[in-house]
Amino acid sequence: MVLSVLFLVLVAVPLYPELFGLDELPPFTQLVAFRPQGLVLVFALALLMLIRKGWRIAAGLVVLLVLTGAGLTLPRLTNDPQPPLSDTRELTIMVANVLGGGANAGAVAELIRQRKPDLVSLPEAQVDVREEIRAQLQGLQYAGYTDQPTSAVESATSVLVSSTLGAVQVKRDLPTEFGHLLVTGGSLGEVRLIAYHGFPPLPDAVPAWKHDLQQLRRWCAADPPTVIAGDFNATLDHSDFRWAMASNCQSVAPEVGRGFVGTWPTDQPPLLRTQIDHVLATRPIVPGSFAAYEVEGTDHLAVVVRIAVPKGS
Rank of each mutant, 00 (worst) to 15 (best):
80 D>W: 13
35 R>G: 06
234 A>G: 12
233 N>A: 09
60 G>V: 00
302 A>S: 13
104 N>D: 14
204 D>W: 15
115 R>D: 08
220 C>E: 04
142 Y>L: 05
89 R>I: 00
205 A>W: 06
21 G>S: 10
30 Q>G: 10
122 L>A: 06
98 V>T: 14
150 T>S: 15
246 A>N: 15
299 D>Q: 12
236 L>A: 09
22 L>E: 04
224 P>L: 01
91 L>K: 11
103 A>H: 05
145 Y>G: 02
177 E>N: 10
262 G>A: 08
312 G>W: 02
53 K>Q: 14
309 V>E: 08
239 S>T: 10
111 L>Y: 06
128 D>C: 01
219 W>F: 14
4 S>W: 01
102 G>N: 06
41 L>P: 04
14 P>M: 09
312 G>V: 00
121 S>F: 02
30 Q>A: 12
179 G>T: 11
82 Q>N: 10
86 S>A: 15
3 L>H: 13
271 L>Q: 13
191 V>P: 07
46 A>L: 05
128 D>G: 01
173 D>L: 12
106 G>E: 14
76 R>D: 00
142 Y>C: 03
169 Q>M: 08
239 S>A: 14
22 L>C: 03
78 T>E: 03
310 P>S: 12
172 R>P: 01
221 A>I: 00
216 L>V: 05
38 G>M: 14
313 S>M: 11
227 V>W: 06
146 T>A: 06
247 S>V: 01
285 I>E: 02
55 W>Q: 12
265 P>Q: 12
66 V>D: 10
231 D>I: 04
61 L>E: 11
114 Q>E: 10
263 T>C: 09
